[in-house]
C-alpha cells in the first residue's frame, strides 16, 4: 500500500473505533430507570473482567508455569484488598522470578 492509502485506512480504523465508544457515551445522558437494566449494567464490568482474565492470564507470559505463579501471587494480594499497582507488581514479580529460576535450572 502507498503511504497515503495506509493513512486513509488508519483514519477509517480510528474513526470507527472512536464512534463506537463516543456515541453511547454522549447519547446516554440519563440515569437508567429500569431496575433490570440497572442491575445488568452493574454486573457488566465484573462479567467483562471475568471473561477477559480467565483463561487469558494463563497465556500472558512465555510459560504457563510462570503465569500460574504470577496468578497465585496476584490472588494472594488481591484477597488482602491490596491496591491495583501492588497486585499487578506482585503478579509480574512472581512470573519474573519463576522464569529466572526456570532458566537457571535449564542452564544448570
Amino acid at each position: 500500500m502507498s503511504d497515503l492509502k495506509i493513512l486513509v485506512y488508519i483514519l477509517v480504523m480510528a474513526l470507527v473505533t472512536y464512534l463506537i465508544r463516543m456515541i453511547p457515551f454522549v447519547l446516554c445522558r440519563k440515569k437508567i430507570q429500569s431496575k433490570f437494566l440497572q442491575n445488568m449494567l452493574y454486573y457488566v464490568p465484573y462479567a467483562v473482567l471475568g471473561a477477559m482474565t480467565i483463561p487469558a492470564i494463563l497465556y500472558s507470559t512465555s510459560s504457563i508455569i510462570s503465569a500460574v505463579v504470577g496468578l497465585g501471587a496476584a490472588l494472594f494480594f488481591a484477597f488482602r484488598n491490596k491496591s491495583l499497582i501492588v497486585v499487578a507488581i506482585a503478579a509480574c514479580a512472581g512470573a519474573f522470578v519463576t522464569e529466572l529460576i526456570m532458566s537457571l535450572l535449564v542452564n544448570a
Partner: peptide, 17 residues
C-alpha cells in the same frame, strides 16, 4: 514476558474484593 501478566493482575485486584 513478565510484564505481560501486569494487566491481568490488575483485573484480579478489581474483581476479587
Amino acid at each position: 514476558s513478565a510484564l505481560g501478566i501486569a494487566i491481568y493482575g490488575m483485573f484480579l485486584a478489581i474483581f476479587i474484593p
